[in-house]
């Protein structure tokens, strides 16, 4: 079935110009310095631009508290996949070179306002944040780390869905990552899912939707099937806010939409309730 597909007009908003960033929502030109000082949120219209995993980690964790785990994991082209545009193996090398990342997720542990947590943060630049074998492996291992050390787990998703170049191994990551989440549930450990722009296909249909608390940012695209596929299927126009964070909140699939600069404190606040429950019960 057709997962979310990337189209040209959905590419990252910020054009790499020298001193200006053009907001892809309102077309305003904003000084680069101002744009990044504002956490890649447009000061004119409030559009939340995409972040790299490092920017996201800096935003969420106490300075210097992050320790990365399983950093060496990377894709190895298990299907010897060749498509109309070339070999997956070659694209892997090029993407690693270009992004400095080795997979579409960075995982590890750190602190949120001094509270220890396990984290996984996806990065859309690496194959559209798609769910490769290595992605699923790192997300599972971080879940197991949370399980072993009794830590809250936070996953920040940013993904177009499955990684077609890894075929059924990619689909199986959905079951694999959810198995990790299921064990956290058994141990009553908290899992907070942050669905950022975009979270689609196989990622939205696995761990991203399974948070004890599901949160998102204003305007984020969250979808199962792609908009065009649905339009072709039902042959009618879709509502304007279809598949936005606001639409999902309205239909009951998100707990809250949080402004980016409030996100760290909000996650911390929520986790204090978990901690209170633990203390009270013991």
């Amino acid at each position: 079935m057709p997962w979310f597909s990337r189209s040209k007009d959905k590419m990252p908003a910020e054009k790499k110009e020298d001193i200006w960033v053009r907001c892809s929502a309102c077309n305003a030109h904003v000084y680069k310095e101002e744009w990044f000082a504002n956490l890649s949120v447009c000061p004119k219209c409030g559009y939340h631009g995409r972040l790299t995993c490092d920017q996201r980690l800096e935003l969420l964790l106490d300075p210097g508290s992050f320790t990365e785990l399983n950093a060496s994991i990377c894709p190895n082209d298990p299907l010897n996949f060749v498509d109309g545009k070339g070999r997956y193996a070659e694209k892997i090398s090029a993407t690693i070179e270009e992004t400095g990342l080795r997979e579409s997720v960075k995982t590890g542990y750190g602190k949120i306002n001094a509270m220890p947590v396990a984290v996984a943060v996806m990065d859309f630049r690496f194959f559209g944040g798609s769910l490769g074998s290595g992605t699923g492996e790192k997300i599972l291992r971080a879940a197991n780390y949370a399980y072993d050390f009794d830590l809250p787990y936070i996953i920040v998703s940013a993904s177009g869905g499955a990684r077609m170049q890894e075929g059924m191994y990619s689909l199986m990551q959905m079951a694999k990552t959810c198995a990790g989440i299921a064990r956290l549930n058994e141990k009553k450990l908290p899992y907070i899912s942050v669905l950022t722009d975009p979270t689609a296909g196989g990622v939205s249909a696995s761990y991203a939707m399974m948070g004890d608390v599901n949160m998102s940012e204003p305007g984020a695209l969250i979808a199962f099937a792609g908009r065009r596929v649905i339009e072709q299927t039902i042959k009618q126009k879709l509502p304007k806010n279809f598949q936005t964070a606001e639409y999902l909140l309205e239909h009951g699939f998100l707990d809250l939409i949080v402004l980016r600069h409030e996100m760290k404190d909000r996650i911390h606040q929520i986790l204090t309730y978990y901690r209170a429950g633990r203390t009270f019960r013991n």
């Binding site: 079935m1 057709p2 959905m174 079951a175 959810c178 198995a179 989440i181 299921a182 549930n185 939205s204 249909a205 696995s206 761990y207 991203a208 939707m209 399974m210 969250i222 979808a223 199962f224 099937a225 792609g226 596929v229 649905i230 299927t233 039902i234 009618q236 879709l238 279809f242 598949q243 239909h251 009951g252 699939f253």
Partner: peptide, 21 residues
């Protein structure tokens, strides 16, 4: 899984994710 308006509205992604978990 059916790709349609009501399917998205009623949480196709959540339903599948829930089953996997």
């Amino acid at each position: 899984a059916y790709p349609g308006l009501e399917a998205e509205e009623r949480g196709q992604a959540e339903a599948i994710a829930h089953n996997l978990t």
